[in-house]
Amino acid sequence: MTLRLVIFDVDGTLVDSQGHIVASMEGAFGAHGLPTPTREAILSIVGLSLPEAFVKLVPDHVDKRDSLTQAYKDTFVDLRATGRAQSPLYPGAAEVLAELATRDDLLLGVATGKSRRGLDHLIEMHGWEKTFQTLQVADHHPSKPHPSMVETCLAETGVAAADAVMVGDTSYDMEMARGAGVRGLGVGWGYHADEMLTRAGAVQILRAFPEMPAALETMWEVA
């Protein structure tokens, strides 16, 4: 039996966090007296680590990168604690993860631009404590699309790159996968357009979560 690994992005892939992210950006920029970028601009940087995201959003204010990052985090936590912003799972996500987690030939992992604190909260909320075997977050790695997160997932699980798939909604996820020698499976319900995913190396783009198990089998059959 060949042991295989499926690595998931989080924001835009497992959870629809755009409302929470945009509101947190509004709080961060408002705290600094700066105009908030458009929703389109904000969603375009989802997946990057926060410092890199702010460099892209406001290149003329690089000196404020660290304080914007902290203001974003503070706002994000406050919105979550007060229930003013939600990040619901995409339809079918819980069921597909539960199905994949029962398989003896599969390991599951996470590679996310979230902090460990944010990921731990999500895992506790959805009861995923035993679902994932490797968890990689922005606290411990260079920002996507650097391949460090995927490479660490492979090292921790002992799975070969040829037997792994990265599932994500942004070009950063697909570029990260390609950099680590792993195939990228794009999802069409997230924050980057199909053409961006394809250009970045997505082998296939899903339209709904229930398509995922069959798509994974097809990808491995043609490997």
Rank of each mutant, 00 (worst) to 15 (best):
L5H: 09
I7Q: 09
F8K: 05
D9N: 01
V10E: 03
D11N: 00
G12W: 01
L14P: 00
V15R: 00
V15C: 01
D16G: 01
S24A: 11
M25I: 13
E26H: 10
E26V: 07
A28T: 11
F29N: 12
G30F: 13
H32D: 12
L34M: 14
P37C: 10
E40H: 05
E40L: 02
E40W: 04
I42S: 02
L43Q: 01
L48N: 02
L50Y: 05
P51Q: 10
E52I: 00
A53H: 03
F54Q: 13
L57E: 04
V58G: 04
V62P: 10
V62A: 15
D63S: 14
K64S: 13
K64L: 15
K64C: 10
D66L: 11
D66F: 00
L68N: 06
A71V: 08
K73C: 04
V77R: 11
L79T: 04
R80D: 05
A81I: 01
T82W: 02
G83M: 01
Q86E: 08
P88I: 01
P88N: 05
L89P: 00
P91E: 06
P91L: 03
G92K: 12
A93E: 10
A94Y: 14
A94I: 07
L97K: 14
E99Y: 14
L108Y: 14
G113H: 01
R116G: 04
E124F: 07
M125I: 05
G127K: 12
E129L: 14
T131H: 13
Q133R: 13
Q133C: 11
L135V: 15
Q136E: 15
Q136M: 11
A138E: 03
D139P: 06
H141E: 06
H141A: 07
P145T: 00
H146R: 03
H146C: 03
S148V: 07
T152D: 12
E156L: 13
T157I: 11
T157K: 08
G158S: 07
A161M: 06
V167S: 01
G168M: 01
G168V: 00
G168W: 09
D169R: 00
T170M: 04
S171T: 06
Y172F: 12
M176R: 03
M176N: 02
G179D: 02
G181W: 03
G181L: 06
G181M: 03
V182D: 08
V182N: 07
R183W: 08
G186R: 03
Y191Q: 02
H192R: 05
H192D: 14
H192I: 00
M196P: 04
T198A: 12
A202M: 07
V203P: 12
V203S: 15
Q204F: 04
Q204K: 05
Q204P: 00
R207W: 00
A208D: 09
F209Y: 15
P210T: 14
M212K: 04
L216G: 05
T218C: 07
A223S: 15
